[in-house]
């Protein structure tokens, strides 16, 4: 996948269209996840006029992906008799969180070892 602006912005603009989001809605989703650019930057990026930094692009991507996932999950057919296989139910995040904290502590320990 190319990393130049023309292919990046097209990916995002398509996702935004599929998500049924206006520029304002996309920007709100991005801001809610910690995005720091203003709505004009985001709009210009979606139009292919300016490039956003890699991190800001990722934040916008998460916002769009979460929205697309919501739309997709909403269309799944729920099971009637098969417990635990409901595709719309999400497993607990506790495991992932424990791992997350452990990883952060591990990183810190490594950083100390290097120093």
């Amino acid at each position: 996948m190319g990393n130049d602006i023309s292919s990046r912005h097209r990916l995002f603009a398509t996702a935004c269209h599929q998500a049924g989001w206006s520029v304002r809605q996309a920007w709100l989703g991005y801001v809610s996840l910690g995005g720091r650019c203003d709505i004009f930057d985001v709009e210009a990026f979606l139009e292919g006029l300016v490039m956003l930094g890699a991190h800001e692009q990722d934040v916008l991507a998460v916002a769009l992906n979460e929205r697309l996932q919501d739309l997709y999950l909403g269309r799944l057919v729920p099971y009637l008799h098969t417990d635990g296989l409901d595709p719309a139910s999400s497993p607990t995040a506790t495991e992932a969180l424990t791992e997350l904290l452990a990883q952060a502590e591990h990183d810190r320990a490594e950083g100390k070892a290097d120093a």
């Binding site: 497993p91 995040a93 992932a96 969180l97």
Partner: peptide, 8 residues
């Protein structure tokens, strides 16, 4: 990464 793994 945690969000993806836990689908949360």
């Amino acid at each position: 990464s945690a969000s993806q793994r836990s689908q949360t």
